[in-house]
C-alpha cells in the first residue's frame, strides 16, 4: 500500500506573528518556518504503517515555493521514501491545493492519503475534505487512531462529544489530530540520508490545474488586546472582586 502525505511549510508554532503595518498581510520575513505540526504527525503515522509492514512506500508531497523543499526534507528525514514538490510562487488556497493533490494522487495511485487536520497558519481545516470529495473517496477527519485491516480502514475520530469510530473502504483520506501519535525527532544520520532521497519537482503548470485564488484577503488586523488585569492578594480578595466588581458569581 502506497501512502501519500501532503505537508505544508508554515510559520513555526512558537512564533507570535505580526500584521504588516499596511495591513496587507502577515510579516513573514525573518520568521522561523517549520513543517505544519499536524503534517508532522501524518508523516509519523505513515512511517509507522510502513515500519509495521502495512505500507510499502511513503511519499511526501508539498505544494508551494522552492523553500518547501526544506519541509519535504524534514519528512524524508523522518522516514518518507521520496518527495514531490509541486512548485509555484503563487498564492495557493485550499481548493487549489486539493486539485493539485488530486492530480498527484492520480499519477501515484496511493491507497491512503494522510493529511494534517489543519494548517496552523490559515487554520482552514479544508484540504483533506476537499481532496476526498474530488477523488470520490471516503474521509475520516480528526483521527486519533488509524488501523488498516486488509481493504478497510478503521479510524477513531475526535468529535465534539467524545470519540467516534468509522470503517472506510480504501482508498481513503485521513486527517490527523494531535493525539494520533507523537512524532519522532529526525536523527542526524537520518537527516544526512534524507539529502540523498529522491525529490521530484513538478512545475504547477505541468498538472493542468486552475489554481487561481477564489477568495480575496483584503485586510489583516490584530484582534483587540484584552485590558491588562490585576493580581489579587488572596482568595478572599478574588471572591470579592468576582462578586462586587465583575458581578459574575
Amino acid at each position: 500500500m502506497k501512502i501519500l502525505v501532503p505537508v505544508k511549510r508554515v510559520v513555526d508554532y512558537n512564533v507570535k506573528v505580526r500584521v504588516k503595518s499596511d495591513r496587507s498581510g502577515v510579516e513573514l520575513s525573518g520568521v522561523k518556518m517549520a513543517i505544519n505540526p499536524f503534517d508532522e504527525i501524518s508523516v509519523e503515522e505513515a512511517v509507522r504503517l510502513k515500519e509495521a509492514g502495512t505500507a510499502t512506500e511513503v511519499i511526501a508531497v508539498s505544494c508551494g515555493s522552492a523553500a518547501s523543499q526544506e519541509t519535504l526534507r524534514t519528512a524524508l528525514a523522518m522516514g518518507a521514501d521520496r518527495a514531490i514538490l509541486v512548485e509555484t510562487d503563487a498564492e495557493l488556497q485550499p481548493l487549489a491545493v486539493g486539485k493539485l493533490l488530486k492530480a498527484v494522487a492520480e499519477r501515484e495511485q496511493p491507497q491512503l492519503v494522510i493529511c494534517g487536520k489543519q494548517a496552523i497558519d490559515d487554520d482552514a481545516n479544508q484540504t483533506g475534505q476537499i481532496l476526498a470529495a474530488l477523488m470520490g473517496w471516503g474521509q475520516a477527519t480528526f483521527a486519533s487512531k488509524v488501523v488498516v485491516e486488509g481493504e478497510t480502514l478503521r479510524v477513531t475520530r475526535e468529535i465534539d462529544g467524545g470519540l467516534e469510530t468509522l470503517e472506510l473502504k480504501l482508498p481513503a483520506v485521513v486527517t490527523s489530530d494531535l493525539r494520533l501519535n507523537e512524532p519522532r525527532y529526525a536523527t542526524l544520520p537520518n537527516i544526512m540520508k534524507a539529502k540523498k532521497k529522491p525529490l521530484d519537482v513538478i512545475p504547477v503548470a505541468d498538472l493542468g490545474v486552475d489554481v487561481a485564488p477564489r477568495l480575496r484577503h483584503t485586510q489583516y488586523s490584530e484582534p483587540p488586546t484584552r485590558k491588562a488585569g490585576i493580581k489579587v492578594a488572596d482568595v478572599a480578595d478574588l471572591i470579592a472582586k468576582l462578586k462586587n466588581d465583575a458581578k459574575v458569581i
Partner: peptide, 29 residues
C-alpha cells in the same frame, strides 16, 4: 472555495475570520 470559522458577516461574500490561532483577523471577499 469554502470559508471556515467566520466570526462576522458584513454581507454576501464579505466575512471576517481568525487565522494564526486567533492572533490575526482577516477580511475575506
Amino acid at each position: 472555495a469554502p470559508v471556515s470559522d467566520v466570526v462576522s458577516i458584513a454581507g454576501v461574500g464579505r466575512y471576517v475570520r481568525p487565522i494564526y490561532a486567533g492572533n490575526v483577523m482577516v477580511s475575506v471577499e
